[in-house]
Structure formats: C-alpha cells, structure tokens
Design a binder for these strands. Structure first.
Lengths: 138, 138
DNA sequence: TTAGAGTCTCCCCACCAGTGGAGAGTCAAG
DNA sequence: CTTGACTCTCCACTGGTGGGGAGACTCTAA
C-alpha cells in the first residue's frame, strides 16, 4: 500500500508541509500552470509527485531573485520542453539587473532631491499666505 | 456675472484644465478629503476656489517626492488647522529618505547576489536530472 | 427649444501574489 | 457510524491610485 500511495502521488497538504508553502499558494500555482499535478484521486484530490518539490524549490529561488511568476513560468516552460533553461534564466537575470539599476538610479535621484531640499529647510519660516509651505514654494 | 461666478467658485472641469489633472482624479481627491470643495451649485456641481489650485500644486509636489496621499493628507490637515506644516513635512521627507535608503540597500544586496550568480554562470552546463537548473542547484 | 457639452453617482476594472471564508465533499481512525 | 481532519470549488478582498463607462441630470449657446 505504501508503495502504491507513493506511486499515486501525495496530496496537497503533504506537499505543503514538505515544501513549507501554504496550501492556498500551491493551488494558486497549479491554477497558473506553474505546478502541474500528476492527476486527481478518485475523490477529486490533486496528486503531486516528488518532482513538484523540486519545482517549488526552483520557483522559490527565482522569486527571491526578483523574478515574477510569469517570468518563472517562461523558464519552466523551457524546462518542460526538455531543454536546459539555463540560457533563458541567464537572460531573465540579466534583465533583472537592468531593472534594478534603473530603480536604484531613480531612487538616488529622488534621494538627492530630498536631501537638497532638507539641506536648506527652515523648520519655522515666516508665514506666507500665498503658499502652503514656504520651503517648497507651493 | 463674471464676478459672481468667480465668487461662487469654479466647476470641476475648469479646475481640471487649470491644474492639468483629470476630472476623475479631482473627484477622487475630493472623496479622500484632500481637496475640499467650497460647496455645491444648485444643480449639484462641485464648486472649487482658487485655493484648490494651490492645494493641487502642493499635492503634486509632495507626490513627486514620493509621499503617499495619506501622508500628504496629514500635512494638509496641519495646514488646515492654521499652522505652518513645514515641521511635519520635514519629518515626512526625512522618513522618506530612510525608506529610500532601505530600498536602495535591499536592491544593492539583490544586485550583488545576481551579479555573483551570473559571474560563474555556465550557459550550457551538463544536464543533471536531479535539478532543473544546474547553475542554481535547484 | 434643442443640441451638445459638462457633470453627477455608482459600480467595475487594472496591477501582483496571494489570503480568507463559505459550503460541500472525502477519507481514515476509533 | 461518527467524528475530525483534509480537500474541493467558488467568490471576495487586500493595497494605492486612479481609469472606464452607464445612465441620468444640468447648464449654456444658438
């Protein structure tokens, strides 16, 4: 029986406890097509294989690197086609670095603007009815 | 007639064209309490004063500095209480710099992780059925 | 008087990655 | 047989800042 149940796959709660992810998240991933179940039990329960566990590790890793589920799905599609996804992942990660560089650039510009503004800030300036905040001139 | 209509306030479309903001946005701001109308016309139209124009400039400026509408509302509440909001704004902008520093720090850490990963990347490694991507070891 | 432009309220939609709950069905142990 | 744990589907909601559109009303100029 044990052998049969292993061959038949594990139910979602088992996959949740083994992966550390909430059941809800696993169903969500399955709905998106990120995490295909190997089938359903007679009672309609999703059944997953140990392969799912590896998939979830992969997804988790790419998520911590900042890729979206859609991008991860693209990589998994390559894998599912039987090819090594390394080239595609490399491209995605390169794009991610570019995105980050853009974000850092924007944040630094904004930081400078704020810093400059605060450098000349007067906490208690003369009241000016023409503006709401004299420091901002608006 | 002109004098009366000025005294009675302008309608939302006029405020939109003078401020450059969409009518929808002005209604949204009014709903939030950011932009109080001076009243309604007999037909139920919102009426705004020229003061609203200054308020919108203020809101726009703080938005470009990265403050949320809720934070801006706090500053405007101080202004509406008759006080100069400069001190509060200074605090908000200081917090914003801290937020930005935190974000930049996170982004830099992530960037480093990505960079390190790509530095040793092999675009076409040997296939390993135990992992999806040998470069990631998952 | 009538056409057209402007305005009103109300409701749904978007993003992203889930989370929460209701109500019903399934399964294993006692 | 019953109880409790597990699972199913379906729906709504989160956060922040609005956008789109329906259907009804108001105002203004010709």
């Amino acid at each position: 029986m044990t052998v049969i149940s292993l061959a038949a796959g594990m139910k979602i709660g088992m996959l949740a406890s083994r992966s550390g992810l909430p059941v809800k998240t696993l169903r969500y991933y399955e709905d998106l097509g990120l995490l295909p179940a190997i089938g359903r039990s007679e009672g309609g329960y999703r059944l997953f294989s140990d392969e799912s566990l590896r998939r979830l590790e992969f997804i988790r890793r790419l998520k911590t690197l900042g890729l979206s589920l859609e991008e991860i799905q693209g990589c998994l599609a390559v894998h599912d086609a039987g090819e090594l996804p390394c080239g595609d992942i490399e491209i995605q990660l390169g794009r991610q670095i570019e995105r980050i560089d853009g974000q850092i650039k924007e944040l630094r510009q904004l930081r400078k603007e704020l810093q400059d503004l605060l450098a000349g800030w007067q906490s208690d300036p003369a009241k000016d009815d023409a503006v709401i905040c004299p420091n901002l001139h608006v």
